[in-house]
Design a protein around this nucleic acid. Structure first.
Lengths: 151, 151
DNA sequence: ATTTAAAATTAGAATAATTCCATTTTTCTT
DNA sequence: AAGAAAAATGGAATTATTCTAATTTTAAAT
C-alpha cells in the first residue's frame, strides 16, 4: 500500500469526529470488517491500548483476526489520520482516536496515559519555537510523572 | 546497579557543562575507561548517535568494548542526568549531551536531528498545560518536518 | 603490595515488538 | 460469474534492546 498523506495534522483542531467510512472512502481505502472492528475497539475504550491489547479485544468480535492484520489496520488508520500513534520512550506503541490537539501524560505509578488538552495559544507558542527554516508537520508533547487521584 | 535519581531534569536550565568525573563520583559510580570513552564520543560529535553509532566510534579508542557495555554505559549516563535519551517514534534511541531545555526536530528528508532551544517562558507555558493533580518530572517535545537549508 | 569484595565488562543467548513474505481470501469491477 | 486488485493470514524474520553467567577490573582494607 502506498503511504497515505493524512488530511489532518495531529495538532490540528478537529471538533467533528469524522466517520470511519467517510475517511477511508475519501482515500479509496476499503472499509473492511477488520478495519472497522479495530477502529471501534480504539474508539470504545479510550485507554490508549497497545496492538496486543487491540488484538485481544477485537478477537471478541472477529475471533480469527491475526496480529499482522491488526498492525496493518492500525497503519492504515494512522496513515488516514483517524488514529494517533502514541509512543513513550521505546515501549510498545499505543493508539489514540483523539484528534484534537493534546499532549500525553504517563503516570509512572499506574502506567495510565492521560490526554491533556492543549489550548490554541500554547499550540501557537510551541510552533513559534521553530527557528526560520524549520517546517514541522506535527509535534508530540509527552510528560512523565505521577497523577495524584484525589480521594 | 540501583536505579539512579538524576540530579537534573531534562528540562532544567543548566549552563555549566558538568564534568563526567564529578557527576559520576557524586553518585559513587565508577568512572571507568568505557564510560569515559562513551561520554567523550557523545560530547565530541553531537549528532545524536544511536547505540550502534556509539559502538563503532568508541571502538576506535577501546577496540574490544562490547555492545552490552555501550548500553550499560549509556544507561548509567542517562541515569546520572549527563546524557538525554532521545526517541522518535520507535526508531533506535539516540543520545544527546545537551542538558539545557530544548526540543528535538527530525528532518524527514535527511534524518538529521536538531536541538531547538526552548526559552523559559515556553517551558513555563508547557508546564502550565498540566491540570491540577498532574505532577511531571520531565517532558519531551519532538517535531517532525523538513529543514530547509538555505543555499 | 596483597587480598578481598563489590562493581563493571564481556560474549552470546534471549526477548519482544514489529515487519516481512508467500499464500489464500475477500472485495470490487466488469 | 470472472478477473484483477486489495486485504488478510500464519508464520518466519528482523532488530533494538535486555538478560545471563562468567570473567575482569576497581577501590578499599589490610
Amino acid at each position: 500500500m502506498d503511504k497515505l498523506v493524512p488530511l489532518r495534522m495531529s495538532t490540528e483542531l478537529n471538533t467533528s469526529q469524522p466517520s470511519l467510512l467517510t475517511s477511508l472512502k475519501e482515500r479509496g481505502v476499503r472499509p473492511t470488517r477488520q478495519r472497522t472492528a479495530v477502529y471501534q475497539c480504539i474508539l470504545t475504550k479510550r485507554d490508549h491500548p497497545t496492538a496486543d491489547d487491540i488484538l485481544s479485544r477485537v478477537r471478541h468480535i472477529l475471533p480469527t483476526i491475526s496480529f499482522a492484520t491488526v498492525y496493518n489496520c492500525l497503519e492504515t488508520l494512522v496513515s488516514c489520520g483517524l488514529v494517533r500513534q502514541v509512543n513513550f520512550d521505546r515501549s510498545p506503541s499505543r493508539y489514540c482516536p483523539n484528534l484534537s490537539p493534546h499532549a500525553h501524560f504517563k503516570c509512572e505509578k499506574t502506567g495510565e496515559i492521560f490526554d491533556l488538552k492543549l489550548n490554541d495559544s500554547l499550540v501557537h507558542a510551541i510552533k513559534d519555537a521553530l527557528p526560520p527554516g524549520f517546517v514541522a508537520e506535527n509535534f508530540d508533547l509527552t510528560f512523565n510523572g505521577s497523577h495524584l487521584s484525589q480521594n
